[in-house]
Simulated assay, not measured.
Amino acid sequence: MRRLFINTIVCAVYSCFMGCTVAAQISDTRITEDEIEQHLTFLTSSKTKGRYPGTAGNRRVVKYIRSEFEQYGLKSFNGDYLQKFNAKLRTADGEESSKEVKTWNVVGYIEGNDNHYKKEYIVIGAHYDHLGYGGPSSKKPGSEEIHPGADDNASGVSALLEIAEKMARNRYMLDRSVIFVSFGAEEQGLLGSKYFVEHLPVDKEKVKLMINMDMIGRLNTEKQIYMGGAGTFPGGVKLMKELGIQMGLNPVVHAGEVGGSDHVSFYKEGISVVGLHTGGHSEYHRPEDTMDLINIGGERTIAEYIYKVLIRVVNENYELTFINQD
């Protein structure tokens, strides 16, 4: 009876945006281990061949993410979820690179509901590319094995998709708007995020915070989730700690120590950031970074945690200004 009452209220409030039948389903939307596993299975499959830029496997992943964004009902900028750019591929130390390939960022957004604050944006991202069969960034030199990159960064992408789906169903809760980006060519030098920041689909001054997930699939027994940059926005350190503890996590929060993943591209442009990961491991950039080592239950908890962070910062009452940590 209580659940029916809540759904009835939601229908009344949200009827101008969605039908009552859909609104009644909102409270049932959950981030699930099964769906995280489905995303991980696809992203690390032999068909994607390590998601190396310029390959058929990479393009297959781009189509998959685009299809998911479309299915969730995310909006696109300029009528297309794909932001094309050219990536210059890394070579061994001392060698000059001349090869460029075409690749993409996949971008969608959910518009906020407040007439004023919907013109402000939170960006949440995770890179989808990896090392293919190895190459100069592999920690197993000379390897010709597929590097599936389950933790790096199929874990981040699968969480991004689940968060996007849940937030799309609960879009009535948003004051600010949220942009979801899966970056290409991160392993080639943060190229996708650099391109995105240089070609933002909205005014840079309106981008208030960037949240990045890179390697969040190995939650340990101490339940430690590490993050840097939380001091770049007001109350960030306190927020990340408190919500993490509420989720049963052990958040290790740094005000600075921004890190080395895609959120750095935003921080360099004066945009507040926080980057999350579950720590390094011996399988990093090796063929052994496989799906069977992912803590799927732990990743689900982290995704729910990040969702709660988003719900808090999209609220018009949460002040968002840039605080330099250099």
Rank of each mutant, 00 (worst) to 15 (best):
residue 212 N to D: 09
residue 114 D to W: 01
residue 4 L to K: 13
residue 65 I to N: 03
residue 312 R to Y: 10
residue 7 N to W: 11
residue 119 K to N: 15
residue 123 V to T: 09
residue 96 E to Y: 07
residue 17 F to W: 12
residue 139 K to W: 07
residue 46 S to G: 10
residue 174 L to E: 07
residue 228 G to D: 00
residue 311 I to D: 15
residue 236 G to I: 00
residue 224 Q to L: 05
residue 88 K to S: 12
residue 147 H to T: 07
residue 40 L to K: 08
residue 134 G to I: 01
residue 68 E to T: 09
residue 179 I to W: 08
residue 168 A to I: 05
residue 168 A to D: 12
residue 95 E to A: 12
residue 130 H to L: 04
residue 179 I to F: 03
residue 260 G to P: 04
residue 106 V to G: 02
residue 273 V to N: 02
residue 207 V to C: 05
residue 181 V to L: 01
residue 250 N to Y: 04
residue 105 N to A: 06
residue 74 L to M: 02
residue 176 R to K: 13
residue 289 D to Y: 07
residue 265 S to V: 05
residue 217 G to W: 00
residue 260 G to A: 07
residue 36 I to F: 10
residue 107 V to D: 00
residue 275 G to C: 02
residue 139 K to E: 13
residue 121 Y to A: 11
residue 188 Q to N: 08
residue 54 G to L: 01
residue 29 T to G: 12
residue 35 E to D: 14
residue 222 E to S: 15
residue 295 N to G: 09
residue 296 I to F: 11
residue 1 M to L: 13
residue 154 A to E: 05
residue 173 M to S: 15
residue 285 H to A: 13
residue 229 G to N: 04
residue 185 A to S: 08
residue 190 L to A: 08
residue 32 T to L: 11
residue 242 E to L: 02
residue 176 R to Y: 08
residue 253 V to H: 00
residue 185 A to Y: 03
